[in-house]
Design a protein around this nucleic acid. Structure first.
Length: 425
DNA sequence: TCTGGGGTCCTAGGACCC
DNA sequence: TCTGGGGTCCTAGGACCC
């Protein structure tokens, strides 16, 4: 088989410091200032502007550890606002789809685009056009990496970001570039794999490229060898062009303050369960299995750690909030232990199926029909009048356990007043 | 005092079957 | 005393991603 005549061209478009860029849209004053966005509960730093990176603030670092540094350097802080980021993400993706019929939305801030239809000499300019259009129409800056496989386009994108080059087309001097590319930064090589590779003398991407395939496969797994193949320019990871429905649905949160009593945990688990049920109904799915988990903080060495999880198989696949909440609460009671200060709880719905194809409820078809109507009404009302306009009493009213968000910009792109102005010229 | 959340895939090992 | 062998399916846990 020849790979020469069917060389693919794949672009990876990645938004620069995406969450920070989203917040900046509404506060142009902070455009060249250091900015960070914090995770839920204002726990960790999850997005940094270049200026913040230059200060030495690391990705994923706990906020309290860099609080002083942030204060001293007047870094702008935001609590994360996923409604806003999701909305802007959809706008960016819509624009990317104007450049190729084959786009894989890989995450909230990046997409792979098949550009194989382009001629060699057109590629760099096309990449530039993509950046320009996204920036002009949304205000979000991006980096574009282009190469013959997904893994190589990831490398190209990485280089584009690092060199602030905008667009990098990786098609020549590939080996030289790979020699300078740390193994840890290769897509698919995480903490454990890079440890293993470095132990065996493979500390950059090029060394993995020239390693024996049987050795790689033996020492890792099929994914490891796929990565090595892709570095050689042999495409093994296809673009996923059709959005698959999710197979699991998890809703979990850390608490703003530690929670000790069962009732508050019940409120939290009920709320998460309602959210999760709404999510799968939105995808026309039902679940057959439900997992509840609770845990204390793994970081507090002075207090005893407790973590437990319980999984329940439902007799009939369902998306009925009320049924699910009942199960979740009785499950929680089985794993709850008094005397601990819980830091996090969550719910996982699994064995998800399309509601149409799922088995018919033989025992109570009438009730099932009725409950579907009820759920629809609830979802509609909540959509129209705001989340949890209708809830159930068990979810609690005061919600003192809920998370901290002290630095929220409060921007909601669903409200018209906040829409960014863009020039159409 | 304070450490995110939501996914996917792979593998080893157990249960079960003939 | 000697205690098969091969297959499938499922699950928990680990590794990875953003």
């Amino acid at each position: 088989m020849s790979y020469i005549n069917c060389t693919k061209k794949i672009a990876l478009v990645d938004c620069n410091s995406f969450y920070v860029s989203c917040e900046r849209l509404f506060k142009p004053k902070i455009l060249f200032k250091p900015v960070v966005v914090l995770s839920n509960n204002d726990g960790c730093v999850i997005s940094r502007s270049n200026e913040a990176k230059a200060l030495g603030i690391k990705m994923g670092e706990p906020y309290f550890k860099v609080k002083e540094l942030i204060k001293k350097n007047k870094v702008n802080i935001f609590s994360s606002n996923y409604a806003l980021y999701g909305d802007l993400s959809r706008r960016v993706m819509r624009i990317l789809k104007t450049f190729s019929p084959n786009v894989e939305i890989y995450s909230i801030d990046e997409a792979f685009i098949d550009l194989s239809f382009l001629k060699e000499k057109e590629i760099e300019d096309y990449g530039k056009k993509i950046r320009e259009r996204v920036l002009k129409w949304t205000g979000i800056p991006t980096s574009v990496g282009i190469s013959s496989t997904k893994t190589l386009s990831k490398v190209a994108n990485h280089i584009a970001k690092k060199e602030k080059a905008g667009v990098v087309y990786l098609n020549k001097d590939v080996d030289e570039k790979l020699k300078k590319f740390p193994i840890r930064d290769v897509w698919g090589v995480g903490k454990q794999l890079s440890k293993f590779y470095i132990k065996n003398g493979i500390d950059n991407a090029h060394k993995l490229k020239i390693a024996s395939n049987t050795w790689v496969k033996k020492g890792t797994n099929v994914l490891g060898s796929r990565t090595a193949m892709e570095l050689r320019g042999i495409s093994c990871i296809n673009l996923e062009l059709h959005e698959e429905k999710r197979k699991n649905c998890c809703v979990s949160r850390s608490f703003g303050n530690k929670v000790a009593d069962l009732q508050k945990l019940e409120e939290a688990v009920t709320t998460y369960c309602l959210n999760a049920a709404e999510k799968i109904r939105g995808d026309n799915q039902v679940c057959k299995r439900l997992t509840v988990f609770i845990r204390t903080s793994p970081f507090n060495k002075n207090k005893k750690f407790y973590s437990n999880t319980i999984t329940i198989d439902l007799p009939i696949a369902t998306s009925n909030s009320i049924e699910m909440v009942k199960k979740a609460r009785s499950a929680l009671k089985k794993i709850y232990k008094p005397g601990f200060f819980y830091q996090k709880a969550g719910i996982i719905l699994s064995n998800l199926k399309d509601s149409e194809t799922s088995e018919f409820n033989l025992f109570s078809p009438v009730i099932e029909k009725k409950s579907k109507k009820l759920m629809k009404a609830i979802d509609y009302t909540n959509m129209k009048y705001g989340r949890h306009a209708i809830s159930i009493a068990n979810a609690g009213i005061s919600k003192r356990w809920k998370m901290r968000r002290e630095h929220s910009s409060g921007i909601d792109t669903a409200s018209f007043a906040y829409l960014p102005k863009v020039s159409a010229s």
